[in-house]
Each structure stands twice: as structure tokens, then as C-alpha cells.
Design a binder for these strands. Structure first.
Length: 261
DNA sequence: CGTGGCTCCTGGCGGC
DNA sequence: TGCCGCCAGGAGCCAC
């Protein structure tokens, strides 16, 4: 589920609830979510330490102790949940941190597509995963340099975390929709000015989504995202939306103003 | 290199 | 009612 805007809100949430708290204990309920780290290593990185800092890159959330960083990826259904009452433990808790103040932080992930890793530093992690620059932090120059040599279709290019990190299926659809571009447009035929428009609208959309709490239904009028459903009409011209599959991913397009090139 | 297909996993929904 | 296939806001891997 979570794309960049949701993960940014997760970061703020963890920052506000868990920062500076001392971790008493770490429990892993499902080892399948561990990415290249053992439970013992995760414990060693966290237990007895205080959470010092949070950071986000693309769809990854990082939390630091004095020793290491824990990197969290939420897959399609993950979220962090902070709570006090042990009986309120989320149903799909895969990792549970207890703090000295007797509160808890759960890594809740119904479909287990999320994961947790440990790294000495955020930059090292980004390099190891070969992630592109964060979609909200990338400069126009960087963006241009990364997209110019690409081939293939626009939507998969926007979703490629190695090119720019943070955009998923929903916001990729939103970006191409707002510019009246078809998701299957070839990247290599885009004019310089169009690339610039994509860069600008990408930042606008992601920031707007964060400001609206990453709630799809809270997005402004004229946004596609609240209408990505079978049988809905284009919020800008009323034409029935088309449901197509682009590179295996479900996509909604307005056949009137997103013409296939 | 780009793309399509498969995989991981769970659960909700529509159809029969 | 029960079962089945399909689908979901992610992403890595492999074959062509």
C-alpha cells in the first residue's frame, strides 16, 4: 500500500511517538519479514538503545539507535502502530518493540510483503539497494539526467525505484493523468519541457498528498486517485475512465485526454 | 535493455 | 452456503 506520502506520515508518527525512548525488548513474530538480518542481530542493534532519529527515503523508513539503523519497508499492507494497551496489539504484528515507558511499537503487515533490515547507515542502504534519489528531494538536474537515458513506458519508469524512489501505482497514475499523458507513452519521445512538467507535477502531487494526510479521498477536486474504481468518470471531463493493465499493474486512464501516442 | 510472467503473502469480493 | 478465481497502493527474479 504505502507510497512516499504514507511513509512520510509514518515517519512523522514514529518521530512523534517513539523518539528518545529506550527500547526494552524486540520480538520477531515472523522471521519471513527479516531482510538479510537475523533476529539476534536486530535485537543487538536495538535493545537497550534509544531511538535517536528518523529518516525516510522513497518508501523506506529508517530509525536510528546509537549503533545501527533499522530500515522498514511496508509492502502493500504494512504500517507502524504505537500503542499502550497490550490487548490492542495489531492483528498482523510481525515485529514488536517494547519501550521502557511501557508503550509498544508494532510493525503490522497483513500480507507480509513488507520487511525490516539493519544497516550501518542510510546512504549505505540506498547504495546496496541501488535506490534512486528520493522523489521529493531530487533536483530537476538529477531528474533529467536519470530519465533522459531511459527507454520504455512512462508509468513503469516513474515506478522504478532505481530511477526515482517513492512513487507507486497510485501516484504514477496521478502524475500521468494530470499531465494528460498516456501511461504507455515512451519515455524517450518526451520533450524536454514535458519532462520538466513531470518533474514539477510529481513534487506537487506528493506534497499535496502529504498535506492531506495521504488519504486518497481527501485529495483535491480534479485528482484521479479518489476515482480509481470500476465505473467511475474522469473528474475533469466526465468521460468514463478506462481500466487497463500497464506492465502488469492496474491503471486507470481518461480516454478523452490521455490519448495513446 | 525492456517487458511479461511468476513468485512471495493474505484476505475480500463477485460469480457460479 | 461453499468453493474458486481474481484482485489489491510492492518488488525481486528470470526468460525471451
Amino acid at each position: 500500500m504505502p507510497e512516499l506520502p504514507s511513509v512520510e506520515l509514518f515517519r512523522q508518527y514514529v518521530q512523534h511517538t517513539s523518539l528518545q525512548q529506550r527500547i526494552a525488548r524486540v520480538r520477531v513474530y515472523d522471521e519471513r519479514i527479516l531482510d538479510g538480518v537475523t533476529e539476534a542481530e536486530l535485537r543487538d542493534a536495538l535493545q537497550g538503545q534509544r531511538l535517536q532519529e528518523t529518516r525516510r527515503h522513497g518508501k523506506y523508513l529508517f530509525v536510528a539507535t546509537d549503533r545501527r539503523w533499522m530500515a522498514m519497508h511496508f509492502g502493500m499492507t504494512g504500517e507502524p502502530v504505537y500503542f499502550r494497551d497490550r490487548n490492542k496489539t495489531p492483528e498482523h504484528t510481525r515485529l514488536l518493540i517494547s519501550f521502557d515507558n511501557e508503550n509498544w511499537l508494532a510493525f503490522d503487515c497483513q500480507r507480509r510483503l513488507g520487511n525490516v533490515a539493519v544497516t550501518p547507515g542510510v546512504d549505505a542502504f540506498i547504495q546496496r539497494k541501488n535506490l534512486g534519489p528520493d522523489a521529493l528531494a531530487i533536483s530537476w538536474t538529477q531528474f533529467r539526467q536519470r530519465f533522459r537515458p531511459k527507454r520504455g513506458m512512462l508509468k513503469p519508469a516513474l515506478m522504478d525505484q532505481h530511477t526515482v524512489a517513492g512513487i507507486g501505482n497510485i501516484y504514477a497514475d496521478e502524475i500521468v493523468f494530470q499531465l494528460g499523458l498516456h501511461p504507455e507513452t515512451s519515455v524517450d519521445v518526451l520533450h524536454h519541457a514535458t519532462l520538466r512538467d513531470i518533474y514539477e507535477i510529481m513534487g506537487d502531487i506528493l506534497q499535496t498528498a502529504i498535506d492531506r494526510g495521504a488519504q486518497v479521498d481527501a485529495l483535491p477536486d480534479g485528482y484521479l486517485a479518489p476515482h480509481r474504481r470500476e465505473g467511475e468518470d474522469c473528474p475533469r471531463c466526465g468521460t468514463p475512465l478506462q481500466h487497463i493493465r500497464v506492465s502488469g499493474r492496474s491503471s486507470y486512464v481518461c480516454p478523452h485526454h490521455q490519448r495513446k501516442p
